[in-house]
Simulated scan of single mutants.
Amino acid sequence: MGIVVKSVAPLLAVGALLAGCATAPPQSNHAAYEAYEQQNDPLKPFNKVSYHFDNKLDTYVLKPIALGYIDVTTPGIRAHVADFMSNTDAPAQLLEFMAAGKPRDAGTTLVRFLVNSTVGIGGLFDPAGALGYHRVYTDLGLTLAGYGVPEGPYLYLPFAGPSDLRDATGIPASIVLTPTFPAPPSTGLTIFNYGSDALSVVNTRAQLHGTISNIRKTSLDPYATFRSLYRQHRAALLKEINKRDVATPPAWYSAAQRKAMRHEEYDASN
């Protein structure tokens, strides 16, 4: 799995576009060509190099650090760290939900940020969840997907992990939309940004340790497994957003019109 180095990843994404592409099999070989199309991985030569680089980095650096972190923390502490990191992403997600035309999720995100930033001590705790405002998630890639932008070819970025051309656009956006981005630069702010990024990486790696270890032990092709799981996860996130944030038929519509709208919304989300 990759780690997030936000200032480097966008440049690597550009490098990926310039990398050599995998050669498609002849269309006369229907089975091979169909498999190639289904993988949607024409940048596989670059992606495989990136994957193996990250795998080595994880084996010799990130995994040992994560295991040490697991030894000195509890699941509760790791959950609080994840809550804090999620809260720092809320302003960006608020704007992305608004851009996607998802007012319910935008409202939930705003309430969660205000409550958790105050009562929840900066997001270390999740009192908003106890009040019924449960965590929702989006990013720029999912917003673009909601407007019908295709995912594009699969892309594995060094230091950032599985992605695709559409989702990779969210990396520079995530930098600009962080709460600390507009603040005047200072030594303290720099230390906080690098420290929080490092903590987020280690905490996330610790939470995914069991899953990653299991895939590496049992999968015949971990690269293909991670690619498949990434796509399934992104599709599930988009489906959740579409099912959760549907329009409410106006009260002045007739019963038949409201029923028809609900059926249309249900069909669109399935």
Rank of each mutant, 00 (worst) to 15 (best):
140 L>H: 03
26 P>A: 14
31 A>W: 13
251 A>R: 12
194 Y>D: 09
58 D>W: 10
37 E>H: 15
59 T>Q: 11
247 A>T: 03
31 A>M: 13
101 G>P: 00
22 A>R: 00
56 K>R: 14
16 A>D: 12
269 S>V: 05
145 A>C: 10
70 I>Q: 14
202 V>Q: 07
93 Q>Y: 08
180 T>E: 13
194 Y>L: 13
88 T>G: 14
45 P>E: 02
150 P>R: 04
8 V>F: 05
214 N>A: 15
186 S>I: 02
246 V>E: 04
250 P>I: 03
44 K>S: 06
186 S>W: 01
227 R>L: 01
135 R>N: 01
202 V>D: 01
57 L>E: 04
18 L>D: 15
9 A>G: 00
261 M>G: 02
185 P>C: 14
260 A>W: 01
258 R>H: 10
35 A>W: 01
20 G>D: 11
240 E>S: 15
136 V>R: 01
265 E>T: 06
254 S>W: 07
235 A>N: 11
67 L>E: 14
195 G>D: 00
232 Q>S: 10
127 P>C: 03
168 A>V: 10
78 R>S: 07
80 H>W: 11
107 G>I: 03
144 L>N: 12
246 V>Q: 05
216 R>E: 08
198 A>C: 13
7 S>R: 15
35 A>I: 04
146 G>I: 11
158 P>R: 03
222 P>F: 08
21 C>M: 15
187 T>I: 15
111 V>F: 07
94 L>C: 12
75 P>S: 00
208 L>T: 07
219 S>M: 05
1 M>P: 01
233 H>L: 11
8 V>A: 04
210 G>H: 03
37 E>M: 15
77 I>Y: 06
173 A>H: 08
